[in-house]
Computed example of a mutant assay.
Amino acid sequence: MGFDRKLSIKERIQKRRKQKRKRFFIVLCFLLISIMTYFVINNALGHDGEDPVFSDKEPAQSTIQITAAVESTPTAFPASVGVASSVSTTPEETNGDNVNASPANSAENDAKGENSLEVSSSAQGKVNYDKLKSDLGQYISKFAGQYGIHYIDLENNYEFGINDTNEYIAASTVKVPLNYFVYKKIAAGEVDPKKTLTYTEGDFEGGTGILQNKKLAGKSFTIKYLMELSITHSDNIATNMLLRHFGRKNLKNYMRSLGGTVVKDNKNVSCPKDMAIYMKDVYEFCNSNGELGEEFKHNLCNTVFNDRLPKLLPKEVKVAHKVGNQIEAVHDVGIIYTDKPYVLTVMSKGIVSEEEACNVIAEISKKVYDVVKDR
């Protein structure tokens, strides 16, 4: 063994045992590293070739349990603040039609750097919208990146925008028109919300949501449940299942039919003005479709992500909204239910700090609320 013969037998035994322990730990560490490497490689191969639509940092946690092959709607969701979800700009399958309607108007607005829509002083009543717009423009100019804003007074249809027709990564804000698209089909009797969709491997995606943490093989979920999760938890898997069933291009065409101008088949993009148009339609749908409308409104008002539009508003003010995150992009689009409700959509690009961007959106929301709440 190479021991010093001057050592006693007891010392030789102790030294031999020490070497054996050392070899044992080396072998154990090697085995652990090998096992971990196997699982990492196996997991990567298991989802190789996927075309992810959504991507984000961490999932929203929930106590919802999947106990049956078919899930119904859970009775309650946690009210905690979560990390916002996102939709990537990974190209989708398309026939090559990349539509961006109203190019003349878009070019004009891009040249100006903001939407040219103004509200005349005589029509503004108690609110000086020109001053509000100017104040907001000065405020967002202090920060890195670009912020786009669109406001609609739902009582009088007054509206204005700043950088609101430029192209932004839509991220998870696209889940609003997706849900609206499906709800309209349910209202028309074309879709049964109790119909179940079965999970496939192609639906898998990490990021926000709760389904990714469950054993999904062979599981089926109702359309109603998937819609709820896609809004309240911004669940990416639920959204992918809905997109697979209803068709991504069908959704894009529907967004165009609503008046969306920044819509492309191969990219997940939008703008604050388009999102405001969708939110206004959602507001009208919720008001005129009884329990179905209340269900949609409930989902939007009970999302776990509340670190932007609602953050600085009074607790009693309901905000039906949807956030979105991507690299250098943080958004929130919503309906603020004051005595006279209004739509406010804020999108960003080129931001350097997610935390700063969330706070900027919260401040924008508070500034608008303080000016228009008593109009």
Rank of each mutant, 00 (worst) to 15 (best):
E92T: 01
T198F: 09
L251C: 06
H233I: 01
N98R: 11
V119Y: 06
G189W: 11
E71T: 11
P59V: 05
M1C: 05
V53Q: 07
C301L: 12
N240F: 00
M227D: 04
R375K: 14
V343W: 01
V323D: 13
Q138F: 08
G260C: 02
H298P: 01
V343C: 01
Q326A: 14
A44W: 00
N306E: 08
T75L: 14
K214H: 09
M255S: 07
G350L: 03
R17M: 13
N115S: 14
K264S: 11
K195G: 03
T89Q: 06
P91G: 04
L32M: 15
K318G: 02
G202P: 02
R23Y: 12
L300W: 00
A170I: 11
G260D: 05
A171P: 00
Y139S: 03
R17L: 15
Q146F: 06
V330N: 00
E93H: 04
R23K: 15
Y38M: 10
T338K: 08
V27A: 15
G290F: 06
V368T: 05
L243V: 07
L312V: 00
D110T: 03
L313V: 13
M1F: 07
K219A: 02
Y183F: 15
R5Y: 09
V269Q: 06
Q124M: 08
G189M: 09
F143M: 01
I64P: 14
G113C: 09
V83S: 12
K373M: 01
C271Y: 01
Q138V: 10
R16V: 08
T303P: 00
Y147C: 07
A101E: 11
T208M: 04
I277Q: 03
L300S: 00
R16D: 13
K264R: 14
N128A: 10
Q65W: 06
K264N: 10
E356L: 09
K131W: 06
V319H: 02
L136P: 11
Q61R: 12
S34H: 02
G209P: 05
V174T: 15
S88P: 00
G96D: 10
C301V: 01
A238Y: 07
S122Y: 07
K280D: 01
V282R: 09
V343M: 03
G145V: 00
N302A: 04
H150E: 11
Q19T: 03
A170K: 07
I9D: 03
I336E: 00
K252N: 14
I364N: 04
G189H: 09
D130F: 12
S88H: 06
